[in-house]
Design a protein around this nucleic acid. Structure first.
Lengths: 179, 179
DNA sequence: TGGTGTGAAGTGGTTCACAGCA
DNA sequence: TGCTGTGAACCACTTCACACCA
């Protein structure tokens, strides 16, 4: 199998073919009229476009249940992200063993971020600390935050925040299915 | 404090005031011109609109790292969702203790869903089983799936799927911050 | 013939701006 | 005066539909 059509790709991705073509067209002329997209070229190009992403060091802040789960989650590694260290303030939490990354006190966060030039952080602290910790992260030089705390973070414009609020996802789901 | 203005609400929610007003207007005439929205009425109305959501039973399928973390996550409870049971196929997994909900074999899923009239499921199985398990869920009567598996599920039109792909969130983040 | 690339039309959601009411 | 509710303008994204090329 040397080529794929926008049609077949669209089908598995659950989008319309025209959508997919328009999106791919942003990366330049990839496809061949009448044939489709050469699979190899397509893979290369996508890898390339997302490519510069793949070596970024990441830290995780807040090693509660969710934080711990994310540390064990190997999906990040697979996509090429490396969680360099985890941070927490709780003394009991800091004593736990068996994590695959160093577990440090929040106090060491700023120097760590600067030393390793960390650009992205995964934030899993309780809601009430979300903003406070985010401020530290941003001041230290973090540019993107994946926010699992149920808080709306107020950050400078150039900082990107992606929020994942699990309870809200469920709520939204239940809103749509109820009739 | 008896009333709030769309302005102040918009500020904390990080949206434009007009947006907020338009959204609230869908619930009827809530605000008073020149004054703002009566806080109590607003709370009541929102609770009401989302209200029917709040008593839904939920099951969780796939008790790997992520699934286990979600079982410990108390954000669901706080929003009024009750995880009735968790399901897995792995014998070792099924033997573990210390969970706050019954842990059952996948084979018992369909009767369980029917018995308790479960409408929503949290799906945390490995990618390769996602579709298969989703089919079982849908056939049993589940109408909404919160999908943590990195799979695009093909489901009947009336079924709602919300996908949370953690690695992809990070990837998107890193795409936007890199310049 | 089959399937991309892409202007043009359509769509849905956002923002403006202001009339109208406390 | 202050602030909502809302038509109208705007905008970004989606879809259509077709020229064009292997």
């Amino acid at each position: 199998m040397e080529t794929v059509s926008s049609n077949s790709l669209a089908q598995v991705a659950n989008v319309k073919p025209a959508q997919l073509r328009k999106d791919l067209a942003y990366f330049g002329q990839l496809g061949t009229r009448g044939l489709g997209y050469p699979v190899e070229l397509l893979l290369e190009t996508i890898r390339d476009v997302l490519g510069r992403a793949t070596l970024q060091p990441v830290i995780l802040v807040g090693v509660g249940n969710l934080g711990r789960a994310l540390l064990h989650y190997d999906g990040f590694k697979k996509e090429g992200f490396e969680v360099l260290a985890a941070f927490d303030t709780d003394e009991k939490t800091l004593k736990q063993k068996g994590l695959s990354v160093p577990l440090l006190h929040d106090d060491e966060m700023t120097p760590f971020i600067k030393k390793y030039n960390v650009r992205m952080a995964i934030l899993c602290v309780p809601a009430q600390y979300g903003q406070e910790v985010a401020n530290v992260l941003v001041d230290a030089g973090v540019q993107g935050i994946l926010n699992f705390s149920p808080t709306i973070l107020q950050v400078p414009e150039q900082i990107v925040v992606t929020r994942v609020d699990l309870a809200m996802e469920l709520e939204s789901l239940s809103y749509f299915i109820d009739q």
